[in-house]
């Protein structure tokens, strides 16, 4: 958590990253940037999914619909914040010549997506019966 707070400061102060270590090969930085963008697209897809649940499942009970939509929107927010945090950590590790950081987030996100998918199946069946 303290590391996260320190990283948040770096998000807004680009020079702090620049001062550390050596500038890596520009191609490594670009690869890191593309990874960041891929995570950002994942976040945008989750947010779009939240809007889609709200719009295209009108027969669902209000609680389920809003709950699912908010869960997807929250997952999108988490995913995008984590994207920039991971990008900063990778950038710093490359400058210092350390190993790239590992992360539990991909496993966590896949579990959340799986749970949401199962919930959707259940909800659609219940909605069909009721």
């Amino acid at each position: 958590m303290i590391d996260f707070a320190r990283n948040v400061r770096v998000w807004f102060a680009p020079d702090e990253v620049r001062q550390e270590g050596r500038t890596p090969d520009y191609r490594f930085s670009l690869a890191n940037e593309r990874t960041f963008l891929a995570w950002l697209r994942t976040a945008l897809a989750l947010i779009g999914g939240g809007f889609a649940v709200d719009q295209f499942l009108p027969d669902l009970r209000w609680g389920w619909r809003v709950g699912l939509a908010l869960a997807l929107l929250a997952a999108g927010v988490l995913c995008s914040l984590r994207a920039v945090n991971h990008w900063v950590r990778c950038e710093r590790a490359m400058r210092r010549g350390e190993d790239l950081p590992v992360s539990r987030f991909p496993a966590l996100l896949s579990l959340v997506v799986a749970v949401v998918a199962v919930a959707m199946v259940v909800v659609v069946f219940i909605g069909w019966e009721g």
Binding site: P14, L44, I47, S80
Partner: peptide, 21 residues
Amino acid sequence: ALTSRHATAAVLCTVATAVCG
């Protein structure tokens, strides 16, 4: 390389869209 301010701005746009949503 991408500056962290640029990356943060892109992420903030995304987060603000989700909050609007």
